[in-house]
Simulated assay, not measured.
Amino acid sequence: MITIYHNPRCRKSREGLEILEKSGQKFETREYLKEPLTEAELDTLISKLQIAPVQLVRRNESIWKENYKDRDLSDRELVAIMAENPKLIERPIVEKNDKAVIGRPPSNIEKIL
C-alpha cells in the first residue's frame, strides 16, 4: 500500500497528491498535522528514507528557529521534537512497502511508483 503524508496547505504536498492520483495506483492519505506520527512511526519512515533525522526537519519553520536551531540535539531528541511538532516534518512523504521518498521536488514521488 502507498501512503502519502500530506499537508493540504502546502503546494508541494498538493502537487505530490496529484501525481499519486494520476498514477492510478491505490493509496491512502494521512494528514499528519491532524493525525501526528508517533516516534516509532517516524523511526520507521526515517529508516525507509535512508536519511538522518535532521534531514527530515523543516529548518526554516519559526518553531525550529526559535527553539532548536542552535542546540546540539541527538537523533532521538530530533525524532521526539518532530513527533511533538509535526509542522517541522518535511512534506510530502510518500511511503510504499519498504521504501519512502520526500516529494521535494514532487517528481521524486515517481521514483517510488
Rank of each mutant, 00 (worst) to 15 (best):
Q50H: 15
K111C: 05
E77S: 10
P53Y: 01
L42C: 08
E21Y: 10
R11Y: 14
N97Q: 15
P92D: 02
L49N: 03
E41Q: 13
N97Y: 07
E110Q: 13
Q25V: 14
E90A: 05
W64E: 06
P53Q: 03
A100D: 02
K34W: 07
N60I: 06
N67L: 12
E77N: 10
D70A: 06
V54A: 12
E95H: 07
S47E: 13
V101A: 01
K96A: 11
R104M: 12
M1P: 15
I4N: 07
L45Q: 09
E84N: 12
I4W: 00
N60Y: 13
V101P: 00
W64Y: 13
I89N: 09
L56C: 10
K48M: 10
C10T: 04
E61G: 06
D70T: 12
I102M: 14
I102K: 06
Y32F: 15
N7G: 06
L113A: 05
E15K: 01
E84A: 13
L49E: 08
R91T: 07
R59I: 14
P36Y: 01
A52T: 11
C10E: 08
P105H: 14
M1F: 14
K12M: 09
I51V: 15
K65M: 10
Q25R: 15
G16A: 06
S107V: 15
Q25P: 02
L113Y: 03
E15D: 07
D75M: 03
I109V: 04
S107P: 11
A83G: 05
I19W: 05
D75C: 04
K26C: 14
S23A: 08
Y32E: 04
W64Q: 13
Y68I: 10
E90P: 08
K111R: 14
L45D: 06
E61N: 04
P105V: 11
E66Y: 00
F27S: 02
P105N: 09
D75P: 08
E84K: 15
K65Q: 14
D72K: 14
L42T: 09
D75G: 04
E28Y: 06
E84Q: 13
L49F: 13
L45I: 11
K22D: 06
G103P: 06
N67Y: 09
L78F: 05
L33S: 00
L42I: 12
E31L: 07
K26Y: 08
N67F: 11
Q55I: 04
R91H: 10
L45K: 06
E31I: 05
L73Y: 08
F27R: 05
S74N: 09
M1A: 14
I89C: 05
P53A: 04
P86M: 03
I109C: 03
V101Q: 00
G103T: 01
R11N: 15
S13V: 00
I63N: 03
Q50N: 15
S62Q: 14
A80P: 03
V54Y: 13
V101D: 03
L20P: 00
K48G: 01
L88H: 04
E90N: 11
I2F: 10
L45T: 01
K12R: 09
H6M: 09
D70V: 06
S47A: 08
R91L: 07
L33K: 03
L17C: 03
P92F: 00
Y5S: 00
G16Y: 01
E66V: 07
A52G: 06
I102F: 11
V94D: 00
Y68N: 10
E31Q: 09
S23G: 10
